[in-house]
């Protein structure tokens, strides 16, 4: 009998703590499948953030380091500088971790061109702490700490991470993808795989920003949240390749 679907061995059997309908499950699977398909799972060291994916080390079937909030790129830098080409090092970070408290670590690991891979989940909200404003929360979006909607006059504007990082010479590859539909998920998988392949090839800093959902804190059903993502997030965060030195880039 032909196998048409099976669980990837890149993930453990531990049941995740993620909410029903959360995009983290999809992205975990895409990352794990990519590591298995590239035959690097056994030499991969992951670095997890603080936020909803804080316990990702329980779910991925590879070595893991738990970093302080926002510091994953610095931790990954230390690990990669020691391990070199022998291993694959990646971080898995949310929007608060990567684009608020860890902005300096993100920008400087990028500008140094560290040969690491960053998987960045942008769902426009702080999930773990119960739905506060994220650096990527949209103008007007209601959160626990923007109860009247994000007022850009007082709370500022969202950070567009791929656009910002693509200005840095040290970045090899930056692409924004989404996990709201099958075609988008397939494209996301290809981008994630490319980001790891770049590291295997020693090409340098690669980041994949995944526009994802948070049904619980957005107060929507999983299906509604995907529609909200399409209607609100994708216009503000256009999908696409922002930097790819394979295709010339800005160098």
């Amino acid at each position: 009998m032909a196998v048409v679907f099976e669980k990837t061995r890149g993930l453990t059997d531990v049941a995740t703590h993620y909410c029903p309908g959360c995009g983290h499950g999809i992205v975990h699977r895409l990352v794990a499948e990519s590591l298995v398909e590239l035959d690097v799972l056994e030499k991969t060291v992951g670095v997890c953030p603080v936020g909803c994916s804080v316990m990702a080390y329980d779910y991925f079937n590879c070595d893991f380091i738990e970093a302080p909030h926002g510091r994953a790129p610095a931790v990954a830098t230390g690990a990669k500088r020691v391990l070199g080409d022998k291993n694959i090092v990646f971080t898995y970070q949310g929007d608060g971790d990567l684009a608020a408290i860890g902005t300096a670590e993100t920008v400087h690991s990028a500008t140094r061109g560290e040969n690491i891979t960053i998987i960045f989940i942008n769902n426009a909200i702080y999930g773990m702490t119960g739905g506060q404003m994220a650096p990527t929360t949209l103008p007007g979006q209601v959160t626990q700490t923007t109860p009247y909607g994000r007022d850009v006059k007082t709370a500022g504007y969202p950070v567009r991470v791929c656009e910002m990082l693509s200005t840095l010479d040290g970045v090899y590859y930056a692409e924004r993808v989404a996990v709201d539909s099958v075609p988008h998920i397939n494209a996301a998988k290809a981008a994630i795989k490319k980001a790891f392949q770049n590291q295997i090839d020693g090409k340098g800093f690669s980041i994949v920003e995944v526009v994802s959902n948070c049904p619980t804190n957005w107060g929507l059903s999983p299906a509604e949240s995907m529609q909200w993502l399409r209607d609100n997030m994708l216009p503000y965060y256009p999908l696409g390749v922002y930097k790819d030195k394979d295709k010339g880039g800005n160098e």
Partner: peptide, 11 residues
């Protein structure tokens, strides 16, 4: 935190 990362991998 780079120290943390390097020590985590045994350096």
């Amino acid at each position: 935190n780079m120290v943390l990362g390097a020590s985590s991998v045994g350096a």
